[in-house]
Simulated scan of single mutants.
Amino acid sequence: MAVNLKGKKVAFLATDGVEQVELTEPRKALDQAGALTEVIAPNAGAIKAWKFKEWGDSIRVDKTLDAVHASDYDALVLPGGVINPDHLRTNEKAVRFVKDFAHSGKPIAAICHGPWTLIEADAVKGRTITSWPSIKTDLTNAGAKWVDRQVVLDGNLITSRKPDDIAAFSEKIIEEIADGKHLKAAS
C-alpha cells in the first residue's frame, strides 16, 4: 500500500553547498508520497548544490527564512554536505527555525553533516544520533550518543550517515510523517 502524505508540508532548510543528492532524492521521495516540499534558504533565488567533489546544479529557493515559521510545516529536513550546515549553523535565523522545530516536537530529519545545525539549536543532548563520522566528536561533546547505523530514530529526530543511506532515510521520514505521532504531540 502506498503512503499518501497529501496535505503535509515539509521544509528543506539549505543554502549554498548543500549535498545535491541529500536534498533532491529525499525531496523526490516525499513529493512522490504526496507531500508538498519547499526549499527554505537564507536568501531568495537559488542555491548552488555540491555534487560529491564538485559544484552541482542550482536549486530554486521556494521561500526565505524571513517568510516562514516552523508552524507552517509538518516536518523539517536538514540535508548535509560540509559547506551547507557550516553556513546554516552560524545563521541566527536558521538556528531559530531549527530550534522552533525542535521545541514543537515535529519530525526533524538530518543526514550527513546536517546534525551540525541540530547541535547549534541545542537539540541533540541525550539523543541517539548518527551522522557522517567526522562529526561524531561534535555530537558527543554536545551530549548526544553517536551510533554508526544507516538510519536512527530517537523521538522526533531521524538521522542518517551519508548518501548511501538516502533510501532508508527517505523511507523513515515518510513513515514518521504518515504515522502522525509527532504531529499529534505537537498540536
Results as ranks from 00 to 15, higher is better:
Glu22Tyr: 05
Lys136Gln: 15
Ala121Gln: 05
Thr90Cys: 06
Glu171Ser: 14
Asp57Gln: 13
Ile59Thr: 05
Val82His: 07
Leu5Ser: 06
Asn91Ile: 11
Ile135Met: 13
Lys106Ala: 02
Asp72Thr: 09
Lys93Asp: 14
Leu78Gly: 08
Leu76Glu: 06
Asp122Pro: 05
Ala14Gln: 12
Val61Cys: 06
Lys99Trp: 04
Trp116His: 09
Ala67Leu: 10
Ile177Trp: 01
Gln32Cys: 01
Arg161Asp: 01
Lys184His: 14
His87Phe: 12
Asn84Gln: 05
Asp86Pro: 01
Ala110Leu: 12
Gln150Met: 13
Gly105Trp: 12
Gly143Glu: 07
Ala142Pro: 01
Ile40Gln: 07
Trp50Phe: 15
Phe101Tyr: 09
Glu171Ile: 00
Leu118Ala: 06
Gln150Cys: 12
Ile108Gln: 05
Leu157Gly: 00
Leu36Gly: 00
Ala46Met: 09
Lys162Arg: 10
Gly17Cys: 11
Thr130Phe: 11
Asp138Ser: 14
Ser134Thr: 15
Phe169Ala: 00
Ser131Lys: 08
Lys28Arg: 15
Glu54Ser: 14
Thr15Phe: 13
Leu23Glu: 06
Ile111Gln: 09
Leu88Trp: 11
Ser131Gln: 09
Ala110Met: 07
Leu153Cys: 04
Ser104Phe: 08
Asp66Tyr: 03
Asp154Arg: 01
Ser58Asn: 15
Pro26Trp: 02
Phe52Gly: 00
Pro115Glu: 10
His113Met: 08
Arg127Cys: 08
Arg96Asn: 05
Gln150Gly: 11
Leu78Val: 08
Leu23Asp: 05
Lys136Thr: 15
Ala14Val: 12
Thr15Ile: 11
Ala144Asp: 06
Gln150Leu: 02
Arg60Cys: 00
Thr117His: 04
Val10His: 03
Ile166Cys: 02
Ile108Phe: 10
Val95Arg: 01
Lys145His: 15
Thr64Arg: 05
Thr24Glu: 14
Ala46Glu: 14
Val82Thr: 07
Thr15His: 12
Leu5Trp: 04
Lys48Trp: 06
Val124Cys: 02
His103Glu: 15
Leu153Ser: 12
Val61Gln: 02
Asp165Gln: 09
